[in-house]
């Protein structure tokens, strides 16, 4: 168990290091060189000034030296400054990570709560009208472009009905925050529920074909006991893995949803940072997001072992 955890955590660290090297290397290829931006902001700067500025910011040193300096700082908790916000990167990112986790957590829980009964309903009567309807709903869910879904929700609930705000974070009060959270959470839920329904339906149908289900029926258990007590518990095991692997996709959905609704989360921050040439913020944001997703994945694997005692973590 301890060995398993250590191995996985090393793996996460390795992915983060590889990713930081890759993205750090790409920063030099991004549009909008920081010194060029300073020069365009101040026409009095001469070429000599530009050279001096480059030296001041260490931009005249080779790439690997700059990366190692960045990594050294990062390992001591110094992730540098955000150009866009004029504050330490971490100070900008952490509250936004909390906002994203709030959005993703709510959407994830809602999606599971909706997917569970629908998947069970469909799997219990394969090829029936109910199954067909649920399946159609699930296919529609996975096929909706998430940003278009957001536009439609804004069009319906904010423009036409005027019930909810079209975007933003609210005034900081609980009611304000909640009313601004409803639409983005709904959009993210609808974007992910279809996939969950399909996994669950397929897995439960598979489980219902197993011999132990026949045995359970043969010994006279009620249909409900068979489905919920025996089949569903086993069907959940593969579903946990697939859903955990979907966390990365869920974060992608959160990025779109946050951008559409102006919800100040990690996804929107990374996107804004790239569009605003604030690459240090983008780099750390990307690493933080990746680390969070991979750790959530690890957590799901622990869940998996807990659900299935046959699995030993090694």
């Amino acid at each position: 168990m301890v060995r398993f955890l250590l191995q996985r955590l090393t793996g996460v660290g390795l992915v983060l290091v590889v990713m930081s090297i890759l993205v750090y290397g790409l920063i030099g290829l991004m549009p909008g060189d920081p010194i060029d931006l300073m020069i365009s902001a101040d026409p009095n700067l001469t070429a000599a000034d530009a050279e001096r500025l480059r030296a001041v910011y260490g931009l005249d040193r080779p790439l690997h030296e700059r990366y190692l300096a960045w990594l050294g700082g990062a390992l001591q908790g110094d992730f540098g400054y955000s150009r866009l916000f004029g504050r330490p990167v971490l100070e900008t990112l952490l509250p936004r990570l909390a906002n994203t986790l709030m959005l993703m957590g709510l959407a994830f829980a809602l999606a599971l709560l909706i997917a569970l009964p629908l998947g069970v309903l469909a799997a219990r009567r394969p090829q029936s009208l109910t199954d067909g309807t649920v399946n159609l709903f699930a296919f529609a869910g996975i096929s909706l472009p998430p940003f278009w879904l957001a536009i439609l929700l804004i069009l319906l609930f904010a423009v036409t009905l005027g019930w909810l705000p079209a975007g933003g974070m609210g005034d900081g009060t609980l009611a304000g925050t909640l009313s601004h959270l409803v639409l983005p959470a709904l959009a993210l839920t609808l974007a992910s529920v279809g996939g969950y329904v399909r996994y669950l339906r397929a897995s439960l149908m598979e489980a219902l074909r197993q011999d132990y289900v026949r045995t359970a029926r043969a010994k006279g258990l009620s249909d409900t006991r068979v489905v919920y007590g025996h089949a569903l518990r086993n069907a959940m095991i593969p579903v946990v893995t697939v859903i955990a692997l979907d966390f990365g996709t869920l974060f992608g959905g959160a990025l779109i949803t946050e951008t559409m609704f102006g919800w100040l989360g990690m996804g929107k921050t990374i996107y804004d940072a790239i569009m605003g040439n604030d690459y240090n913020l983008a780099l750390v944001g990307l690493l933080l997001a990746t680390g969070t997703v991979l750790l959530a994945n690890l957590l799901a694997d622990l869940c998996y072992a807990w659900l299935d005692p046959r699995i030993r973590l090694e």
Partner: peptide
């Protein structure tokens, strides 16, 4: 498969 691919793709697509 496990990575959050969208932000990574955004970075890659922004390369000049």
């Amino acid at each position: 498969i496990a990575l959050p691919l969208l932000p990574l793709l955004i970075v890659l697509a922004a390369v000049d």
